[in-house]
Structure formats: C-alpha cells, structure tokens
C-alpha cells in the first residue's frame, strides 16, 4: 500500500459540493478542456504526468442491483486524481505558488475549501480530503514527465539522422551529426531511481 512508485506519486482526493454548484464546475471544466491556452500553466508546471477531475453526481454512483443499497446523498462529489513527480509538499507548494487562481476556480465550489493561498491552510485541506492508494503501477517508474518529453525528442532526432545517414559523405555526416547532438544536448539526463521522499 503506497502512494508512490518510482518517480511518481498517486494522489486521490474527494470533496463534497452542493449540487447546484456542480453545474458551475462542469462549465469551468468544459471551458478549460476546450481552450487549450488555459492549460498552459499545467503544461509548464512540467511535473504532472496525468491528472483528472471527475464529477460524481449524487445519484450517479454506480448501482448494480444484486442487493447493493442505493446511495442516498445530499452532496455531489468532486474526485481528483493526479500522477505527479516529486514530493507532496513540492507539488502543493507549486500549485499554490503559480496556479492559485486556477485551483480556486475549480475547488472553491467544494465545501470548506479555504482557498489555495496561504499554502498551509490549503495543505491542511488537501491532507484532510486525500485518501490513500492501495496499488500503484507505472510502466516507467524510472522516468518523470520531463524525462519522457526528453526521450521523445531524442528518439525523433535520432530517427531523422538514421534516415539521412546512409546518403551522406563522411563530411556531410559529421555536420548532420553535430546538428543532431545540438538538438538532443539539453535532453540527455539519466533516468533512474527517485530521491527519498520527505
């Protein structure tokens, strides 16, 4: 039972919302999903591999009969799942420092949300609504989101050099190779073990 596998951390959080507010949240997410420029901060934050928000309306918890009792709830619920690199504190600190407006927009509709600034109150809230992961898998525990992006750049650059190489004279190859090294030079960091979580 761990929230951590290699370089990724699995966070789960659940917060209650008054049902009328759910529609506001849906509208916000709809906009966020369709206006890609609004996601730029998430992309630039660069340590989230995958993240999602899932609205679960109070009558929509899966009901399969077979003796299961139907849920009877007053609130809708907002689930948050994130797969991030680095430490819990680093993640929340960064969220609070550079994404506070976006987070407030998403979570202010949840009951008792204190705002994402100042960060200690925000952390207390997240810690309260977080629940722990039983089983966590990643196909590439030795890599972060940055490592993945770097690796794809190296692969694409290599593929293009491999295509060109057979038709080059040695001198042409030397020049193509130098250009290749310059294309990949900022993307050669080692992959491997994650630092100890603290």
């Amino acid at each position: 039972m761990s929230n951590i596998n290699g370089k990724v951390y699995a966070m789960n959080a659940i917060t209650p919302m008054k049902p009328w507010k759910t529609w506001v949240v849906r509208a916000i997410f709809f906009t966020l999903g369709h206006v890609k420029s609004l996601q730029q901060d998430l992309i630039n934050l660069s340590f989230i591999e995958f993240a999602r928000w899932v609205v679960v309306p109070r009558q929509r918890f899966p009901y399969l009969g077979n003796g299961q009792v139907k849920e009877d709830l007053k609130y809708d619920y907002l689930l948050f799942f994130s797969n991030f690199n680095g430490t819990w504190n680093q993640y929340i600190d960064a969220f609070s420092a550079v994404l506070s407006n976006g987070l407030n927009l998403v979570w202010r509709w949840s009951e008792k949300f204190p705002g994402s600034v100042p960060v200690t109150l925000f952390k207390e809230y997240i810690a309260r609504v977080q629940f722990d992961t039983d089983y966590y898998f990643t196909a590439y525990p030795h890599a972060t989101a940055n490592d993945l992006k770097s690796a794809h750049i190296v692969q694409a650059s290599l593929d293009s050099l491999v295509q060109r190489a057979p038709n080059c004279t040695p001198e042409e190859f030397r020049s193509a190779y130098l250009n290749f090294v310059i294309q990949v030079q900022a993307h050669l960091g080692d992959t491997g073990e994650a630092p100890v979580i603290f």
Binding site: K7, G86, T144, N146, D147, S150, L188, G189, E193, P195
Partner: peptide, 18 residues
C-alpha cells in the same frame, strides 16, 4: 530541498538524475 532536488537530482532542471 535544494540539496536533494537541485544538487543530488536534476528533474526540475530537466536533467533527469544528473
């Protein structure tokens, strides 16, 4: 944080484990 993440590790600088 500086010692662990920026000196003994390189992810924030996009340098992997370097």
């Amino acid at each position: 944080f500086v010692q662990q993440q920026w000196i003994e590790y390189g992810n924030d600088a996009h340098q992997g484990n370097d």
